[in-house]
Amino acid sequence: MRALIQRVTSASVTVNGQIIGSTGPGLLVLVCAMQGDDAARADALAAKIAKLRIFTDSADKMNLSVQDIGGSALVVSQFTLAADTRSGNRPGFSAAAPPDEGRALYEHFTQSLRAHGVPCETGRFGASMQVALTNDGPVTIWMDV
């Protein structure tokens, strides 16, 4: 699985003009299930993100996790993280899991992140979404498992 993690002071996702999920302070997690991914990879990614120390402590060092600060996460599915741009000008997305598998792994990942004590709100799988955020730092981390 692949994720782009952003430390945020706030983030929200809107569908058809209505905010359907929000967070802050905490994490915006854009996540993509890739071909060959399974529940074990989703669990590993969730565990890693829950413990990722990217929040600052009293000495202004990145030593705290989202769990440590009592933060939450907004988890948004984003198959475009699977983009292959090596040839031509139009990205290919064949490395992404098929939609049914992607949805199941996205939902499993979100439940696993919750099981690690991180409150989560979500976007809507497959929907056209508008994501707003205030990146804190900025801190943006790319992660593959």
Rank of each mutant, 00 (worst) to 15 (best):
F79G: 08
Q78H: 14
R90F: 14
N89K: 15
A59R: 15
L64I: 07
S72W: 01
S87Q: 10
G92T: 08
Q78C: 13
Q78I: 06
A59P: 10
L81M: 14
T85D: 07
F93Y: 14
A59V: 05
S65T: 01
Q67H: 11
S72K: 01
L64D: 10
Q78S: 13
S65G: 11
V66E: 01
S87K: 12
V76C: 09
M62G: 02
F93M: 09
Q67M: 08
F93K: 11
D84C: 03
T80F: 06
A83C: 12
D68K: 01
I69R: 02
A82N: 05
R86N: 11
G92F: 09
S65N: 05
D68A: 12
A82H: 03
G88T: 06
D68T: 03
D68H: 03
A82S: 10
L74A: 01
S65R: 02
G71L: 02
A73Q: 00
V66Y: 04
D60W: 15
S77P: 08
G92Y: 02
A73W: 02
V66R: 01
G70V: 00
L81Q: 05
L64E: 09
V66K: 00
L74K: 03
R86W: 09
N63H: 14
P91W: 04
F79Y: 11
T80N: 08
S77F: 02
A83K: 03
A59G: 13
V76N: 10
L64K: 05
S87V: 14
F79D: 09
A59W: 11
L81S: 08
G88M: 10
D84M: 03
F93T: 09
D84R: 00
G70I: 03
L64R: 11
D84L: 03
T85F: 07
S72Q: 09
S87C: 09
S72E: 07
S72G: 14
A73M: 01
T80M: 04
V75K: 05
G71I: 00
G71Q: 00
F93E: 10
P91H: 08
T85V: 13
